[in-house]
Design a protein around this nucleic acid. Structure first.
Lengths: 67, 67
DNA sequence: TGTGAATGTAAAACATGTTTGACAAGGAGG
DNA sequence: CCTCCTTGTCAAACATGTTTTACATTCACA
């Protein structure tokens, strides 16, 4: 699922590694999610939203997603 | 993570089985999530919110959750 | 009574998310 | 040039979410 993590992260001048620490996951996890390798867990989604000063609904772009 | 799925589901007079069909998962999955056995995936969280006419942020009760 | 609808639960298999450790490449600045 | 920081990536192990099959309980109601 697409998201605006990279954009918002850069606006706040944070590295992937810093966001990782703030959200209690590894840098690889943040990198994978920014590059759409997989979706975060619901908990991580909430932590990311909090960390980037937004909401889950705004941070992630859910499109009915019929594949 | 706590949520208001059961309440909102009943307001709409839907059974767990009906919500399951609407969100493309099994009845057991809906039951487990309502009873806090585990958290849904981010995708399922969005589908549940859509199905129940609300948002992910309103449907789930995220509390910084330090355990 | 008894039948069907709704819910709770459980184990095994399977799918997806996360960590660990490691390596490569680009840019900024000494 | 050298070094550090940042980002991308990969494979194996591990953790969590989901399905399948199956059974038990309760409630409403014929």
């Amino acid at each position: 699922m697409r998201n605006s993590i990279a954009v918002r992260r850069k606006q706040r001048q944070l590295s992937q590694a810093e966001v990782a620490v703030l959200t209690n996951v590894t840098r690889q996890t943040i990198n994978a999610i920014e590059n759409d390798k997989y979706d975060p867990s619901l908990t991580l989604a909430f932590e990311l939203a909090a960390c980037l000063g937004t909401t889950v609904d705004e941070l992630f772009d859910f499109r009915g997603k019929r594949e």
